[in-house]
Design a protein around this nucleic acid. Structure first.
Length: 827
DNA sequence: CGTTGGAACCTTTTT
DNA sequence: GGTTCCAACG
């Protein structure tokens, strides 16, 4: 199918007309020199690289994000690129938001139209635009890991296979792994009967997802890749569009992501490519265990004939002793690209090492130390406690909890993955797409309405026999069970009818009532927390509405500077600097997703890291993996014991020890001023006491940078560290609020003040004028190429986000993005 | 059909 | 130690 030559994707075209002849890079507008201020020579070189493939080896704390964002701003300000011509890819939503926030502080640009996001987020955007070509329903929903696992379980059951031989988790992992290698069922090499069956399950899973109109995370990537691979017109379009592609954390890319990148950037074997700027650090590659290929860095350098490799080795984060430790440790790894961090900040304090008698004693010591740091003036959010595996957090949590010290645990269960939230989302998904069997099964009997396993089995048989969804097969079950099922589908249908045209908030409130979820949790003794979470879901929806601007008072809100991702109340007099989810319009018709479908997508893609009350001063607890990309004044690395760090499970894998060492390297380089490392002689793990030897990594650190602070006498119980503690103790005892529990938002450093004084690029001014002048009004009749004649019901938003709700009669009522949809007014 | 109790499981991660 | 799944019971 040919791609419409114009308009293509939302705001891109608004910027496509070059405003002015591009200025030579080094003599850009006056504003560019201001952008480049304060960069060191290497950073400056990276920012002002010529428009060709380049690789940046960015050490920890070397100002990588600054380089990335300044590069984009510089390219735009010197007229080398329009916002629509840039793609910037990250791995986490956090990183993407950080980039958007910093960028909008540097330039008065509407970042919404820019392709800046996570791999999966951008794939989502792409597939929403080309859903027909991708053979998906426009409102396809996204399965998270749990959804995907239960889908696999269902298939294994349906195929009457032994769950011992085909462990659902492993099968799920196999499917995701295959997809991440770009392999469809027919491409997987079969060795034996076992792998033959695995492939059959994979195939059945694919068929099922396709039938239900759902995709898992890996599918987002793979389908985008295949669509680009198979359609020359798409390749042409996007390759023409994106002249600059920036990839963050390149060392974490897997095979598929690299192939995906080639699709958008062009294969150097075929000639000219986009200017790909790959930024990465091989020493921080800690995701090999889930398919990341560090080798992509050297492959990229070779295949894209990279002429410029820039090393950012100057560290702006940590003091010398911390960096010496990191450098010494990582030098034990072989096959490195080679890099050494240096600082001009001086040696700073020594790295403190502590040996505890038990995990309990370790936690107790840590608590006292952290309290002391806090009393000495360190904010709690600047104190991080890191550990290798989540299981270690419990003893730490209980120590903090008992002492009444506020803390927050990152990771663990995420907001949108909580059972009650998943139930609520399942109801919402069913109103969008009743054929979503995963959601159907989740709530068909929750709260219980007398539909038992027996009935469900009958229904599943009927559905399987006719190749239809459970919802569609309800009629084939007779008797009392049948009418109970019919009652459920009626509930869903009625919900869909009754919520038509309501706001997101109203839809969710109505659903919570109608489904009986609220009533159920009210009567449950442990239900109060769950009700609070459901209320939080309503709040999240409300915030989402505000971000999306679907509400009646649609205004673009500035991102709260103190916590990107949290949307603050509108700041009067501030220009729009909105970094939000986009409207996800169809490439051809401009039809956008309904607010509900968009919200559900958002829930799946951003499992809710911005859900917690940011701003509370709490000690930060997280795994080392979760700490990547963050920094703190004081860092505790705990549990430095053989078997734990390095983790025993990692030792069986090839390159396992080196990855563990990199993990430790990441942990060390999180610290700005003060670093503690601790280990314990005994540890309760999985209900067993283990006697551990201290980690080999401790031996790999330079003795000169360390200071052993274990007190001479160690004792019994909590009083063990008294001597040591006495020296510290002064001032008040522990105070504060009870720990905030799991899941949360970030509390990053405040963004620099926006440089609004900078000259407004002409392209921007033009686009604003062009887009706001759509000249449409409520009640007006319009003609759409696809949907025919319609009447405008609502007009919302302005500029790039302007959209209209239009009644197209038999085509239904649709939301259209005015920047994309081709509408002709009819008088 | 729904609840409860006990056995068996697992314990790097992100989208 | 905590969670999850299944079997037996109400």
């Amino acid at each position: 199918m040919p791609l419409p030559s114009s308009p293509s994707l939302p705001p891109a075209d608004l910027f496509d007309a070059p405003a002015e002849p591009p200025s030579p890079p080094s003599h850009g507008p006056a504003g560019s020199s201001r952008l480049l201020q304060g960069l060191n020579p290497e950073q400056l070189a990276a920012v002002t690289l010529p428009g060709e493939p380049a690789l940046i080896l960015a050490g920890a704390g070397s100002g990588k994000t600054r380089v990335l964002t300044t590069r984009i701003a510089w390219l735009m300000q010197t007229g080398q690129i329009t916002p629509g011509g840039v793609m910037a890819v990250t791995f986490t939503n956090k990183a993407a938001k950080e980039m958007l926030t910093r960028l909008s502080a540097m330039l008065p640009v509407n970042v919404r139209g820019m392709w800046i996001g996570t791999f999966h987020g951008l794939c989502n955007r792409f597939l929403r635009a080309h859903w027909k070509l991708a053979a998906l329903p426009q409102s396809f929903q996204i399965l998270d890991t749990g959804d995907s696992l239960s889908a696999v379980k269902r298939i294994i059951k349906a195929m009457k296979l032994d769950e011992e031989r085909f462990v659902p988790k492993q099968v799920s992992w196999f499917i995701a792994g295959s997809k991440e290698d770009g392999l469809r069922p027919q491409d997987v090499v079969i060795h034996d009967a076992q792998s033959q069956k695995m492939v059959e399950i994979y195939q059945a899973y694919e068929d099922q997802c396709q039938r239900e109109g759902v995709v898992d995370f890996a599918e987002l990537m793979l389908r985008t890749y295949e669509l680009m691979r198979d359609h020359a017109s798409l390749r042409e379009h996007y390759r023409h569009r994106f002249q600059h592609i920036l990839v963050d954390e390149f060392q974490d890319t897997n095979k598929l992501q690299y192939a995906w990148l080639k699709m958008f950037a062009g294969d150097p074997a075929d000639g000219r490519t986009a200017a790909v700027l790959a930024v990465g650090d091989d020493d921080q590659s800690i995701y090999a265990f889930r398919g990341a290929q560090v080798g992509n860095m050297s492959d990229f350098e070779r295949e894209y004939h990279v002429r410029q490799v820039i090393k950012l080795e100057r560290n702006y984060r940590s003091y010398g002793n911390i960096l010496d430790s990191a450098n010494a440790l990582i030098s034990h790894n072989t096959r490195r690209l080679g890099k050494n961090l240096r600082t001009e900040a001086g040696p700073g304090e020594p790295v403190r090492v502590y040996e505890a008698t038990s995990d309990y004693a370790e936690a107790q010591w840590l608590l006292e130390e952290a309290q002391q740091l806090h009393r000495a003036g360190t904010p709690r959010v600047e104190i991080a406690i890191l550990y290798r595996s989540n299981a270690q957090s419990r003893v730490l949590e209980s120590a903090l909890f008992n002492a009444g010290v506020p803390y927050r645990v990152y990771g663990g269960q995420r907001f949108f993955e909580r059972a009650e939230i998943k139930h609520a989302l399942a109801y919402l998904r069913l109103t969008e797409n009743p054929n979503d069997d995963t959601s159907f099964l989740r709530v068909v009997n929750f709260p219980t309405r007398g539909i038992g396993a027996r009935t469900v089995e009958q229904l599943q048989d009927a559905a399987r026999a006719s190749g239809r969804s459970l919802y569609q097969s309800v009629g084939s079950v007779g008797g009392a069970a049948g009418s109970k099922l019919a009652g459920f589908t009626t509930l869903i249908d009625r919900l869909r009818e009754d919520t038509r045209g309501l706001t997101l908030r109203e839809i969710i409130e109505r659903m919570l009532e109608a489904s009986g979820l609220i009533t159920f949790y009210r009567t449950e003794k442990e239900g109060q927390d769950r009700i609070e979470n459901l209320e939080e879901l309503v709040t999240a929806a409300e915030a989402f509405v505000t971000i999306e601007g679907f509400g009646k008072d649609a205004v673009a809100l500035p991102v709260d500077e103190t916590s990107p991702g949290t949307i603050a109340a509108p700041l009067p007099g501030q220009p729009e600097a909105l970094a939000a989810v986009d409207l996800l319009p169809d490439a051809e018709t401009g039809e956008i997703l309904s607010p509900l479908a968009a919200f559900l997508t958002h829930a799946a893609l951003e499992a809710g890291d911005n859900q917690a009350q940011a701003g509370q001063d709490a000690i930060q607890l997280m795994t080392v993996h979760a700490a990547k990309g963050l920094e703190f004044d004081c860092v505790f690395i705990t549990g430095l014991e053989e078997g734990l760090c390095p983790h025993e499970n990692a030792m069986t894998e090839a390159d396992g020890l080196e990855e563990e060492r990199r993990l430790m390297y990441v942990a060390i380089t999180r610290a700005r001023q003060r670093l503690y490392m601790s280990f314990s002689q005994t540890r309760m793990l999985h209900g067993q006491t283990r006697y551990n030897v201290k980690s080999r990594f401790l031996e790999e650190l330079p003795e000169s940078a360390l200071k052993w602070i274990t007190p001479k006498q160690q004792g019994f119980g909590s009083g063990h560290a008294q001597q040591y503690q006495q020296a510290w103790q002064r001032g008040s005892g522990p105070g504060g609020i009870v720990g905030a529990g799991r899941n949360g938002g970030w509390q990053p450093a405040a963004a620099p003040p926006p440089a609004w004084a900078a000259p407004v690029p002409t392209a921007m001014a033009q686009s604003a004028a062009k887009a706001s002048g759509h000249g449409l009004r409520q009640g007006q009749s319009v003609f759409h190429n696809k949907f025919g004649e319609g009447v405008i019901l609502t007009l919302e938003g302005k500029g790039d986000d302007a959209r209209a709700q239009i009644n197209f009669g038999r085509h239904g009522t649709k939301w259209l993005a005015l920047s994309v949809a081709k509408l002709t007014p009819i008088e």
